[in-house]
């Protein structure tokens, strides 16, 4: 049986997290972070500067005025939004591949990740104290472990996973079945990878715990659980597992989500998700 460490070594950590994004993240997520720090993180990276300015002046940034410098971009759009853009670009390059063992065609994992990121954005507007970018990043990266299991785990063992998921009686979730067959699941792999990228511990924990049932959840973990569910509800990332995921009532209660609110957020997520996909040149 393959171990978690062997799996990650075999697949290799995909494209180390961009140094510029890491610097910007440190400036954005720091309590003492300033506009000056955010600008300094980007302005000497020519490729990123060009990319950010191109995006800042596109329809998808929502800016109505021409933005000529990184300083203007940080002031008008905010460091968090620029960071979200950089992470989304990186994740697209990393996750944009088919994973047949999960029933994911070419863009499905990326689409699910984007839908969860968009759902996190909608949740952040509803849930006070979660609009700091951590939730978006955690939601966007929550299933990155599937990339490694989908490409690195032995095919025979993954077949056993799906046998358990689709059992007529005693069917399990994908995460439970992975754990039973492999001894670990995509959440453990994802946490290991993101930890290697030196992202904040809140993000690592949210990825590690996004399938945990019950327990006291922190805001980011609860948000990722809800965003993951919402992404499935809007039809993104169904794969072989199908719905295979329930919305935990305790999480909904902690996030103060009624059924009506959750439906409204799903509706908003679906519309925004389509807009984001179109900005990348693909519709729902």
């Amino acid at each position: 049986m393959i171990s978690l460490q062997q799996l990650v070594r075999r697949a290799g950590v995909p494209r180390a997290f961009p140094a510029t994004a890491t610097k910007l993240a440190a400036a954005v997520w720091s309590e003492k972070g300033s506009v000056k720090d955010a600008v300094a993180a980007i302005e000497y990276d020519q490729a990123v500067t060009a990319d950010v300015l191109k995006w800042a002046n596109s329809a998808s940034s929502g800016s109505t005025r021409k933005i000529a410098t990184i300083r203007e971009a940080v002031i008008r759009l905010g460091g968090v939004r620029i960071l979200e853009h950089l992470i989304a670009r990186h994740v697209r390059g990393t996750m944009n591949r088919a994973l047949p063992v999960y029933g994911y065609a070419g863009q499905d994992l990326w689409r699910h990740s984007v839908a969860a990121g968009v759902a996190a954005g909608e949740l952040a507007r509803h849930v006070p104290g979660s609009s700091d970018g951590l939730l978006f990043t955690a939601a966007l990266l929550h299933d990155i472990g599937k990339l490694f299991l989908g490409t690195g785990a032995p095919a025979a063992e993954m077949e056993n996973v799906w046998r358990l998921v689709n059992a007529d009686t005693g069917a399990q979730t994908c995460e439970q079945a992975e754990r039973e067959v492999l001894g670990f699941s995509h959440v453990d792999v994802g946490a290991e990878v993101v930890s290697a990228w030196r992202l904040p511990e809140e993000i690592v924990e949210a990825i590690r715990r996004h399938h945990d049932a019950g327990g006291e959840g922190d805001r980011v973990t609860d948000g990722v659980k809800a965003a993951n569910f919402m992404a499935r509800a809007v039809g993104a990332g169904i794969g072989h597992e199908g719905m295979g995921l329930a919305m935990d009532g305790a999480v909904a209660q902690r996030l103060r989500l009624s059924r009506d609110t959750l439906e409204k957020l799903c509706a908003a997520t679906a519309v925004k998700f389509n807009e984001v996909l179109q900005s990348y040149g693909s519709g729902v």
């Binding site: 509800a233 719905m243 995921l245 009532g249 059924r259 439906e263 799903c266």
Partner: peptide
């Protein structure tokens, strides 16, 4: 209208 039969689902959307 898929749903998870083994778990309690607050949303029950399916």
């Amino acid at each position: 209208g898929a749903q998870v039969f083994a778990q309690k689902d607050f949303f029950d959307i399916g």
